[in-house]
Structure formats: structure tokens, C-alpha cells
Design a binder for these strands. Structure first.
Length: 271
DNA sequence: ACTGGCTCCTGAGGGC
DNA sequence: TGCCCTCAGGAGCCAG
């Protein structure tokens, strides 16, 4: 479900509600997400306070007294803050119950998400250690992307969705950023000029910044932690707009599978 | 070393 | 109504 703007929207919503709260109980209702849910969570987490609610890539990181709890929402996951006694629904897999009677409830129909205790050396964990720069990092430049792409034959869209290259860009914003940069998503990564990578680096930052300001993109079911939708969907230029007129030239938007994922673009404005 | 393809899982929607 | 197919915002793994 979520890309960087959606995860960051959730983080911003959760932080004020969770900071300083102490976990009093953990409820596990399904044993297996993308990684198995450890039964030990019910022993490890209670008694620990929330010191910070952070994000790295599309991971949410709850920094607690004795280490970090990592959450990933996969394709279909969402988090809600609700009274702990509220009756759980289908696919409500995990509750973190807090000392104010509220619970952070993790629902994930497809179970591609992750809820994992990383302990005190979170940065060393393989899920985090191989990640590329955040979009707003100083070293995420056109030069950096261009250097990474050198010699690569794969489609540029796949390159920018590779979390080892740059984090946070998923299938929606990859199409959107490439449209803004005027680059065809199927272009061979190693043959795109440095000038165009500079435009692309800017376009990635720009589209993510605007999506974040709009509270993310709600297509089917995205909601922030308070249940509100995001409003970026109405600002999408290409994603989900197959056959509709390009906002630049009026010609119909195309949809083509690249790396197994639908990719939306304008054949006239992107090369 | 890269690359593309497959995989995990459930649910929604379309065609017949 | 029901069945079957395709598709969905992620990302790890594997063979070639």
C-alpha cells in the first residue's frame, strides 16, 4: 500500500500520540506475516516506553527503551490508533496496548508486512543495512543516480524502485517522477544522460514532497493513523490514468508492464 | 554481477 | 449466482 509519503504521513500522525507512552501488553493474532511474528514480542515489549517514532525508507521504527521495533506495511497493511477494547476485525494481526488505554492495531490482509524486534543494534539489521539514501539526502543527486546506473541495462523505472539505489519510491511515484522528468520508464538506465538524471533526482524529490504535503495518495484504502485519506490521487499526472489525456499534450496515457508492474507514461512527452 | 521472473497472501472487480 | 481470471501501493530470492 504505502510508499514514502504514506509511511511518513502515518509516522507524523503516530508520533504525538505515542511519544512517552509505555507499552503494557502485546496481542498477536496471526503467527505469520512476511516474516514470522515472534511470540517473544509479548515478553519483550511490555514495560518499554516510546522514545521516538522514526522512519527509514518505507519502514516505521518505534524507538523504545531497549531497542527498536520495526514495522513495514507491505502492500495492504495499515495502522490505527483505537481504544484497546475495540473488537478486532478480520486481518487485525497485532495490537500494541499502551498505558492510556489506546492500542496501535496492525491490519494487513495480504500479510506482506513485517513486525520485527530489532533490539539495540537496529542499523546492523540486514533489512536496514543495505538501503540507499533517502530522497532528500545530500548525496542523492543526479550524479549519484547516474553513477549507479552506469552499465546497467535494466529499465530506469526498475532502477529507481530498487531500495538499494534510493529508498521510498514505489510504483506510483516512480511513474510520476519519470513523467515529470520527461523520461520514458522503459529507457535503459545506463544510457540516460547525466543531465536527465539531474532532472530525475529533482523530480523524485518534488513529487514526494508534494504527495507528503497532500497527506499521501489514497487509491483504494490508504488511511493515515486517524483514518483520514490522502489527497494526492487527484494530483497524479499518469498513474492510473491509462487512456486519459496527458496533461501536457492531450494524447492518451499509456500503460505497459515493466518488471511485472503497471507503468504509466506519455509516449509523446517521455523519451 | 545483473536481470527478469517467481513468490508470499487476500480481496476486488470484470467477463461469461 | 457463481466461477475463473487479472490485478493490486512491496520486496526477497533464485536460476540463468
Amino acid at each position: 500500500m504505502p510508499e514514502l509519503p504514506e509511511v511518513e504521513t502515518i509516522r507524523r500522525g503516530l508520533a504525538p500520540a505515542l511519544l512517552g507512552r509505555t507499552i503494557t501488553a502485546v496481542v498477536l493474532r496471526h503467527a505469520r506475516l512476511r516474516l514470522p511474528l515472534s511470540p517473544e514480542l509479548t515478553n519483550i515489549l511490555p514495560g518499554q516506553r516510546v522514545l521516538a517514532v522514526e522512519r527509514r525508507a518505507k519502514y516505521l521504527l518505534l524507538r523504545l527503551d531497549r531497542g527498536v521495533l520495526l514495522l513495514h506495511l507491505g502492500m495492504s497493511g495499515y495502522l490505527r490508533l483505537l481504544p484497546a477494547e475495540q473488537v478486532p476485525q478480520r486481518h487485525d494481526h497485532v495490537d500494541l496496548v499502551f498505558d492510556d488505554g489506546m492500542a496501535l492495531r496492525f491490519n494487513d490482509a495480504r500479510r506482506f508486512g513485517v513486525c520485527l524486534w530489532l533490539g539495540g543494534e537496529a542499523g546492523e539489521h540486514p533489512l536496514l543495512s543495505g538501503l540507499g539514501p533517502e530522497p532528500w539526502d545530500e548525496d542523492m543527486t543526479g550524479n549519484y543516480l547516474s553513477a549507479f546506473a552506469a552499465g546497467r541495462k535494466s529499465a530506469i523505472k526498475n532502477l529507481i524502485m530498487d531500495q538499494r539505489v534510493i529508498v521510498g519510491v514505489g510504483n506510483i511515484y516512480a511513474s510520476e517522477a519519470l513523467y515529470r522528468a520527461g523520461i520514458a520508464p522503459q529507457a535503459e538506465a545506463g544510457r540516460v544522460s547525466l543531465a536527465r538524471y539531474r532532472r530525475l533526482a529533482e523530480a523524485i524529490r518534488e513529487v514526494l514532497t508534494q504527495a507528503l504535503a497532500a497527506g499521501g495518495t489514497t487509491l483504494r484504502d490508504f488511511r493515515d493513523s486517524a483514518g483520514r485519506p490522502g489527497y494526492f490521487a487527484q494530483l497524479l499526472d499518469v498513474y492510473g490514468r491509462e487512456g486519459e489525456p496527458c496533461r501536457g499534450c492531450g494524447r492518451p496515457i499509456s500503460n505497459q508492464k515493466i518488471g511485472g508492474r503497471s507503468s504509466f507514461f506519455c509516449r509523446h512527452c517521455q523519451h
